[in-house]
């Protein structure tokens, strides 16, 4: 009896574990299937065409891709120095009394739903941008800034975790040799935890590029490519969030699936680079 139960337990758990792989394969297949119409109809033009006009049956994804790249780039430029600063502060500078409370609150802030960041952006940040740089406030710039603030806690927390992997004994040895804190950071922690730090930053990038709600509120979903950051723009997730339920025609529907597939492939690639190249053998942190 218990031999049978043993077998059942082992096989059920294995079956469920393997179905995770099948599920991921299924997700890719379904997205690809539903994109076929647009892939065959539009071909490579899909990613080079700049016009997105569903009423004219024109579907060019370049504005959305451009928006994703630029908003994420802006977010990274703003968030990376801050996150590294916060991480250095938490791992080396903060007095013991502050270390845990500040560290925990950063982790808790990373858990706040991104839709809340989006709401804050819409009601409190858009007016500030409007007053400072003009325009309507709903813009690529606003989206980049809100995205950077949304990603900051996650980025700071994982970067700090990477820095904290440096063995204390190495740091203590350097301090004993008369090193300043900056010496220890630049000559001990950064060389030791370099891969982990870079991996954490790229992981945060992977999250940022797929982020929907924080930017949907403040980006405007306007399909245009402009150097002017104060104009409304769109990104792949923003387009999906705004237009998915409206898609009526086959090609419109299919091109949105192609956008989803594109987004999934891009983030899979970025996250894989972070995970496999930089964070290998590191236990996952939530």
């Amino acid at each position: 009896m218990s031999i049978i139960l043993d077998k059942i337990f082992a096989h059920t758990s294995k079956f469920i574990a393997v179905s995770i792989l099948l599920l991921v394969a299924w997700i890719f297949t379904v997205l690809l299937q539903h994109s076929m119409e647009s892939i065959t109809a539009l071909g490579f033009d899909f990613v080079t065409e700049t016009k997105w006009a569903p009423n004219l049956e024109k579907f060019g994804a370049l504005p959305a891709i451009y928006g994703s790249v630029v908003s994420t780039f802006l977010a990274m430029i703003l968030a990376v120095p801050l996150a590294i600063g916060v991480a250095i502060y938490l791992s080396e500078l903060a007095p013991a009394k502050l270390k845990t409370p500040v560290g925990v609150s950063i982790e808790l802030l990373a858990a706040i739903p991104s839709v809340v960041y989006g709401m804050w952006g819409l009601f409190y940040f858009v007016p500030i941008v409007r007053d400072l740089v003009g325009g309507i406030g709903i813009s690529m710039l606003t989206a980049g800034i809100v995205l950077s603030i949304m990603i900051l806690p996650f980025m700071a927390a994982v970067t700090r975790d990477a820095m904290d992997t440096t063995p204390d004994i190495l740091k203590e040895s350097a301090y004993a040799l008369g090193g300043t804190r900056w010496d220890v950071i630049k000559d001990i922690i950064i060389p030791y935890a370099k891969a982990g730090i870079i991996g954490s930053l790229i992981l945060a990038l992977g999250r940022a590029i797929g982020e929907t709600m924080a930017v949907t509120f403040v980006m405007g979903n306007v399909h245009q490519i402009s150097m002017d950051l104060t104009l409304p723009a769109t990104s792949i997730p923003v387009t999906l969030a705004n237009e998915f339920t409206e898609a009526s025609s086959g090609l419109y529907y299919s091109s949105l699936f192609q956008l989803s597939l594109l987004l999934l492939v891009i983030s899979f690639t970025i996250i894989s680079i972070a995970k496999f190249y930089f964070l290998r053998r590191k236990r996952v942190g939530l």
Binding site: L31, R207, L240, L263, I271
Partner: peptide, 12 residues
């Protein structure tokens, strides 16, 4: 990887 994959794609 799935943990960090864009959730909107799961919706699609």
């Amino acid at each position: 990887i799935m943990m960090s994959a864009p959730s909107i794609v799961i919706g699609a």
